[in-house]
Design a protein around this nucleic acid. Structure first.
Length: 576
DNA sequence: GCCGTTTTCGGCCCGACTGTTTTCAGTCG
């Protein structure tokens, strides 16, 4: 079995870190990090690509890295890594992770004091030996101790799921607007604005006529635990939940530049600026410097920044340096208003918390014209399983509720378990009674890539399965996707006409942005579903839309932007 | 390390902040 893309990415990250410690130039180190990201986001097996000599087709991967990937996949290790590990023990990388310590200082301390682990660093700091090294001083010593005490060496900074980050960001923006007075406007930038799966720190951009007062007011907000610096240009702080907050205050004349800069992403901005330099332009958060005239243009609106560079406006969700700067045409992205119905929801028949009618009314309230009731199936377990006879009864209940409701069509459905052998846990005859069938994997995640791929493809090819639910099984920050050959899955789904879901639960967002984009490119029809287990979570649809936008999807790529009368002709039930 | 409207070598975004310095290196986003 091939080494996974995640393992290759981790190996490239490690080698980049080791080269950095070894004093390599930053561009070489960056090349490893860029390559690691590319590998992590590639939906097909990079080990296999390397074996076929095609890994070099991926952006940022050349002959040297292809060779190293090949070595990793054939021998389980990369020779250069082995060599450098002997020179720099793992503790050195942990030290380099501490805030305020990079490769230069880590190596300096190793050379001068023999420090090669967080423990030895603490020992030296406590005994005030760090300050004996030229270039280091008492403040550095104190900072190192504080960083060690924070636990930064043991665990990476936590990432917050998007809904929580946006909730905090909106609360802070509102509080700042009130504290700053009438002329104050605050908006969210950074990865939260780009609608990423998770957010490390929150970027807020403000305009105000009292900048110093606004920066100082950050400390007065109840969510804020501490503020480390505040000036007329902004403030940095931390919430009680440990999330870093960066407030930047812009002059209105430069708001466009600042917003563009702090929306990122880093790779997008770096590529944008490299492209600009080729046109004799230099982009920063302050403006666009033109070599020809020697003058700097500032932009009140973000659109003007892109216009000055000869680019169309690029939606924040696309700013990941995934081809948006080179694209001939950018897609007109799908929006929440395009969604006509939700095709994955649960009720009290399984593990949901509301009745069919309650869910239907809430869906109608959202403006949907249809809702599929898709409770779990016969082998779900947890006491929430729906036996075949119970499903037959549930179908009657759905038909009854549908007959009694105006303005929304209820569809009888099920979220059927895909058993380890690829079969489903209801008989075809019963499935044939349904309007809509989703099939999902809920058990036996560890059967291996090949078995999982065969299992999934069996479900995809089942004549009564309309869509596959949360196709990779990932839970953000908690569980990796199960190993599966997605290239084969996408090809099978496109051929069979089985849709693949973007599950909009913000813990899942599965398919992911890069996977959904690859699936659509392979000809798969996407369906975006809330997987709501109560009326309140129907609104999770917005996170699915966020993923779809990051996947470059248009309304036409997504099945449930169509009325049911049209959608049903795409489903398998129409063909039975 | 990669890459090519500067094509096989010589570039490879831009600025702020901090702490240690006497003019700047290192780190960070």
């Amino acid at each position: 079995m091939d080494v996974s893309n995640a393992a290759i990415a981790a190996a490239l990250e490690e080698l980049g870190d080791l080269y950095e410690l070894d004093g390599a130039i930053v561009h070489r180190v960056l090349a490893y990090r860029v390559a690691a990201r590319t590998v992590r986001e590639t939906p097909t097996s990079v080990a296999q690509l390397a074996r076929e000599g095609r890994a070099t087709d991926l952006p940022g991967i050349g002959a040297t890295l292809q060779e190293k990937i090949l070595a990793l996949s054939e021998t389980g290790t990369i020779p250069a890594t082995e060599k450098l590990r002997a020179k720099f023990p793992p503790g050195m990388i942990a030290i380099m992770r501490l805030p305020g310590i990079g490769p230069k200082r880590a190596r300096l301390m190793q050379k001068e004091l023999g420090i090669d682990s967080p423990e030895k660093l603490r020992e030296a700091a406590v005994h005030q030996r760090l300050r004996t090294v030229r270039g280091l001083g008492p403040k550095f010593e104190a900072g190192a101790l504080e960083a060690l005490d924070s636990g930064a060496a043991e665990r990476p900074a936590p990432r917050v799921l998007l809904p929580k980050a946006i909730a905090i960001g909106e609360a802070l923006a509102l509080a700042l607007s009130e504290l700053g007075g009438g002329e104050t406007h605050v908006q969210i930038a950074g990865s939260a604005r780009r609608q990423a799966d998770t957010v490390k720190d929150l970027d807020l951009i403000a305009t105000t006529n009292r900048p110093t007062a606004l920066a100082k007011s950050l400390a007065r907000i109840e969510e804020i635990e501490s503020v480390s610096s505040a000036s007329r240009s902004g403030a940095r702080g931390r919430t009680h939940t440990g999330m870093a907050v960066d407030l930047r205050i812009a002059k209105p004349s430069q708001l466009g530049n600042l917003l563009q800069h702090f929306t990122g992403s880093g790779p997008h901005n770096a590529a944008l600026r490299e492209g600009a330099v080729r046109r004799g332009l230099h982009v920063s958060e302050h403006g666009v410097l033109d070599d020809a005239s020697g003058s700097t243009r500032t932009c009140t609106r973000e659109e003007e920044v892109y216009e000055l560079l000869g680019l169309p406006y690029i939606e924040p969700e696309l700013r990941e340096n995934r081809g948006e700067l080179q694209a001939e045409h950018l897609p007109e992205l799908i929006g929440l208003q395009d969604i006509r119905g939700d095709l994955h929801s649960h009720t009290i028949a399984s593990d949901g918390h509301n009745t069919i009618v309650e869910m239907a009314l809430a869906a109608r309230e959202r403006g949907y014209s249809y809702l599929a009731i898709t409770d779990h199936s016969a082998s779900h377990g947890f006491g929430d399983d729906v036996s075949p006879s119970q499903l037959a009864h549930q179908i009657e209940l759905v038909r009854e509720a549908d007959a009694g409701l105006e303005g929304i069509q209820l569809l009888a459905g099920s979220e059927v378990n895909i058993l380890p052998d690829g079969s489903l846990d209801y008989e075809d005859e019963l499935l044939g009674e349904l309007d809509w069938v989703i099939a999902s994997v809920h058990t036996a995640f560890g059967i291996g890539e090949q078995a999982m791929t065969e299992r999934m493809i069996a479900a995809i090819e089942h004549p009564l399965v309309d869509a596959i639910g949360h196709p990779t099984g990932r839970l953000l920050e908690r569980r990796e996707p199960y190993p599966i050959d997605l290239e084969a899955v996408f090809a099978a789904a496109a051929k069979a006409g089985t849709m693949l879901e973007i599950n909009a639960n913000p813990d899942r967002r599965d398919l992911s942005d890069v996977h959904a984009r690859a699936a659509a490119a392979a000809g798969v029809t996407i369906v975006i579903n809330s997987d709501a287990h109560r009326i309140d979570t129907l609104q999770n649809m917005r996170w699915g839309i966020a993923t779809a936008r990051r996947a470059w999807l248009r309304a036409g790529d997504v099945a449930n932007t169509r009325p049911w009368s049209e959608l049903r002709t795409l489903g398998k039930q129409a063909r039975k």
